[in-house]
Amino acid sequence: MSAQRITAQRRPRPRGWWVPYVIIAPAAIMELVIHVIPMVTGFVISLLNLTRYHIRDWSSAPFAGLANFITALNISTPIGQGVLHSFGLSLAYTVCVVTLAWTFGMVAATVLQRPFRGRALWRTLFLVPYALPMYAGVITWNFMLQRDSGLVNHVLVDQLGLMGDRPFWLIGDNAFLSLVIVAVWRNWPFAFLMLMAGLQSIPADVYEAAAIDGASSWQQWRRITLPMLAPVNRVLLLVMSLWVFNDFNTPFVLFGDGQPASGDLISFHIYNASFLTWDFGLGSAMSVTLLLVLLAASLIYMRATSPKENRHA
């Protein structure tokens, strides 16, 4: 046994043993720089009373322990109530946007699954919202949703006469609806793209066999398409939910300074808590809490949706 170990220890390393490490090193370093260090830094800041008085020298900020977390989560105070409101709003926003974006993406991908004349044109057209620069797309919606000069009210009120008075779309409760519409417009092409790629991998003979057996289109979609797309959907829904829940750009560009209460998503709320009030400790505590919540939700989701044979892998 001892002799075997010595032999193993003395065995020369194969040529090029270092190649995998070199190949993986850039990715590992980038992961460290882009993800790990900022996350650890954020966690450390959340334990500090880091306000304007210490922002020049973080090391001088007093240790706050869990005080920032208590402040952020104490729903009997205005700050805690604000966080709770934004969290609930983001949850509703995520459910609405992901559901609608996935539905549109699935419908479009299914319709375009089989070849027909002009299919490439439709595919390209559907991807336009995703290809447009985010700012250009959302600011165009801002112009369209203006009460007096916007295209939406011009069509709904002036052209179609569907409403007596011009509604507001960027303030009041309608602002949430506007936010969802813009986010769905921006996100559904991604769902479409992923689902289209998934559909391409389903063999055509499965559908042919089902058709011979008398399965209707609905049954084929329900019994073949959905189950065979399950692995794609599992990742797609998770990734989209995380992106949408953390969406900052859409409300930031759509509402600007005139941010309504119904558009106060959690990322925007954290930005306000951190940058506009100089309380980086509190803002970081909110961010860390959000990270933990999303991580827990993701784990539960992955566990609940993974195939049974993989659960103990």
Binding site: G198, P231, V232, R234, V235, L299, R303, S306
Partner: peptide
């Protein structure tokens, strides 16, 4: 654990990955 779960999803999602 989360990453492992991602890895275990299967070959079908390689394209997505």
């Amino acid at each position: 654990v989360l990453l492992n779960r991602f890895m275990a999803i299967g070959d079908e999602t390689k394209e997505v990955h």
